[in-house]
């Protein structure tokens, strides 16, 4: 652990709520609107932190505990993330598995909280969430396996500080594609979920947190931003792992690329419609297939 890795972690913790703002601003520009401030998520979070809360009578302590465990899980996942050659605060062999499973913990409690409200809408959202993430998980882990094979390392820090060699280029491109689909699905973006929808029946992530208010909802919003940062930074790390950047430049590169990634997500959301819910499993199965293909390539073409 050194100052650079702390800097990297702090950049994520502080800048993450910027991402939804940038996505929304991009969409507004595309639609010819002025749009909300880029810092809107920060304003929302601080406003909510000052408020009281309203709880449903149906809920139990699981509902109150869940946001806290979710936030702890996603912060824990972020401590495992390096920025290119800048090491992560925590790293050991196999931490890539832990990284994936931290999101599993977050999801378990988010879904439990949704079921705790006893609402049919939230049950429906929870059902879709677990279905899609069950398919996204193999894509993520097989993609990580391809990276591990290409670099011969079993920790995220090791993977991104080693150079994979030019023969792994096509495989890395395929892994990036799979991770981008996982990134969109896990963060409830178009084409999997539409964060702007106003109909409870069609929501996935938004409907699951419908009954939260006050500081709990602030935690939920922050957790979502962090999750977007964590999975996005993983993707950015794969994309730019060939750059010979060191020290603060690497951290700055990752943070800067995160902003570009948000613009890209904004563009995707502006030019694409959401997929029908029945088609989403096919998209995710496609991501798994891409990961398997990447893995086949690295197994065949690297020693």
């Amino acid at each position: 652990m050194n100052t650079l890795s702390i800097l990297n972690l702090l950049a994520g913790l502080i800048l993450a709520p910027l991402l939804p703002g940038i996505i929304n601003r991009t969409k507004a520009v595309f639609a010819g609107r002025h749009g909300q401030p880029v810092l809107q998520t920060y304003f929302d979070i601080f406003k909510l932190l000052r408020k009281g809360a309203v709880y449903s009578r149906t809920t139990s302590w699981v509902f109150r505990l869940s946001p806290v465990i979710g936030l702890a899980a996603v912060i824990a996942a972020m401590t495992l993330l390096p920025a290119l050659s800048a090491p992560a605060p925590v790293s050991f062999a196999g931490d890539l598995i832990l990284f994936a499973y931290c999101f599993g913990l977050l999801r378990f409690f988010l879904v439990a909280a949704a079921l705790d409200t006893g609402s049919a809408f939230e049950g429906m959202g929870a059902s879709r969430e677990v279905q899609f993430s069950a398919l996204a998980e193999p894509a993520l882990l097989l993609g990580l396996a391809a990276l591990a094979r290409a670099t011969g390392s079993l920790s995220l820090t090791g993977i991104f500080s080693a150079s994979a060699g030019p023969s792994a280029g096509p495989a890395l491109a395929l892994v990036s594609a799979a991770l981008f689909i996982v990134f969109l699905a896990e963060n409830a973006r178009i084409p999997v979920d539409d964060p702007n929808t106003h109909l409870e029946l069609t929501m996935i992530h938004e409907v699951m947190v419908l009954d939260y208010s006050g500081p709990d909802f602030a935690i939920i919003l922050y957790t979502s931003s962090l999750k977007m940062w964590a999975l996005g930074a993983l993707l950015v790390n794969v994309l730019f792992s060939f750059l010979p950047l060191h020290g603060p430049a690497a951290v700055a590169c990752v943070a800067g690329s995160m902003i570009l990634l948000s613009v890209l997500v904004g563009i995707v959301e502006s030019i694409m419609a959401r997929l029908s819910l029945l088609k989403v499993p096919q998209l995710l199965a496609g991501a798994v297939a891409i990961s398997v293909l990447a893995l086949t390539l690295v197994l065949r073409f690297t020693s």
């Binding site: 009281g52 809360a53 009578r57 006050g214």
Partner: peptide, 19 residues
């Protein structure tokens, strides 16, 4: 932290959101 934030704030109970 969350418990401290909610101290001295109005916390009430209601029904689950049902449209």
């Amino acid at each position: 932290l969350r418990t401290r934030l909610l101290r001295n704030k109005p916390v009430s109970e209601s029904v689950t959101w049902d449209c």
